[in-house]
Amino acid sequence: MPARFGNPPERSGVSAVLDNLDLYFKAFGYTVFLFLVSAVLALVLGTVLAAMRVGPVSVLRTFGTAYVTLVRNTPLVMIFLFFQLGAPKIFDTLRFTWVDIHIGPYDFTSFFSAAVAALSLYTAAFICEAIRAGVNAVPLGQAEAARAIGLPFGGVMSQVVLPQAFRASVPPLASTLIALLKNTSIAGVFGVIEAVGRMKGFTNDYADERVGIFVAFALGYVVLVEIVSLLSTLLERRWKVA
């Protein structure tokens, strides 16, 4: 898979990347893994938070609101710092030394886990808001009509409200996931050699090719972002009601 060219006589602007294509793809592999794992965790957490915020139990509503307000206004870097420097001092579990998974050339250890924890806790707040926006987008009349024809609570939810809410939350969810994809880059500063971490390494090692390196890594992100965005457009189109 990786093409190694040895030492080409002429160094083109991106030969640092071309010579190390295996490292380049491995770095983006970490980006994708970070994205996928954090996205799944954030979706689960965010859905729970959204359920708390729209649910009838006032204590949980307050908690959900407080969590979202706090986390949305906190810089992600501070959350990363907390999981790197703060949390291990308070809870032994949060050292993540118990995570030691190796799949192929990829190692998922404490740095990766801390990054996933920070990313998913942060993104969950935004997922919660996206889902809540979807629920709020359902017109009240829909639920009232469903109740009026005698559907029980479960029926109102599963047949009328949630399908519409889910559709309405696809665009904001996609925006949130794209933001998450870009935010995985912060992990590059906190010990995970994903795309930005690798780019920083290349930038230091091949000082005369910095522009080419930047463009190469930027293109990688553009491709990933476009894939997520395309998937969401497809889903949106598929679920659109005529």
């Binding site: 870009k182 935010n183 880059s185 912060i186 590059g188 500063v189 795309a195 930005v196 780019m199 920083k200 930038t203 000082a207 910095r210 930047f214 890594f217 930027a218 992100y221 553009v222 972002v225 476009e226």
Partner: peptide
């Protein structure tokens, strides 16, 4: 589409 952190590193170096 490009992460801000990447732009920052590029600008810095």
């Amino acid at each position: 589409a490009v992460p801000v952190i990447m732009l920052m590193i590029f600008c810095f170096y």
